[in-house]
Amino acid sequence: MMTELSLNVLDVAQNSVKAGAKLIEISVIADSHTDRLVITINDNGCGMSDEQVTKVTDPFFTTRTTREVGLGIPFFKLACETTGGAFEIKSKLDEGTLVKAEFVLSHIDRMPLGDMPATMLSLVTMNIDIDFVYRFRVNEKEFIMDTREFREVLEGIPFNTPEVSRYIKEYLEGNQTEVQGDIVI
């Protein structure tokens, strides 16, 4: 099992990377009024057939050849279902995949969100040719990071350049603190 939800996000987003996505949209939306935390990962990668979609939540299904189990999606699904939440995967071949996990925010078994800036930073700086849109919302406050805006400014300087990755790190951490305020997710 993962120890925090941001690690599930990192893990599931790797599937989007492997699916050849050019754009990956990740959103984390916490709402204390409806008592829900909704995490979505949406990509424009190669997608899956209907048959594959029905199998991915089975831990004994995997497309890889180095081992015989695939626990990424089952872990994420279990993490949200133990809170009384719901899990959904939609996919279409050649169009992309949407993973949506809905958690009951105040449930005792909901894992902490953890370090989302660290997850986003490693996704952005380790996959410099992929664009990411990250939306983080807590009740009425939100911020959106769109790497296409960064790319336009940078004129070819890659995201993994030390100065640039430091900027992205501070951008993510600063904005998250501002949006989150005193609320611990």
Binding site: T3, L10, G70, L71, S165
Partner: peptide
């Protein structure tokens, strides 16, 4: 290594430390 197994075992802070 950053697959499910690596991440669950603590690969993210290791990656950060190397970077």
């Amino acid at each position: 290594g950053m697959a499910t197994c690596g991440i669950a075992a603590g690969a993210r802070p290791v990656l950060t430390a190397f970077v």
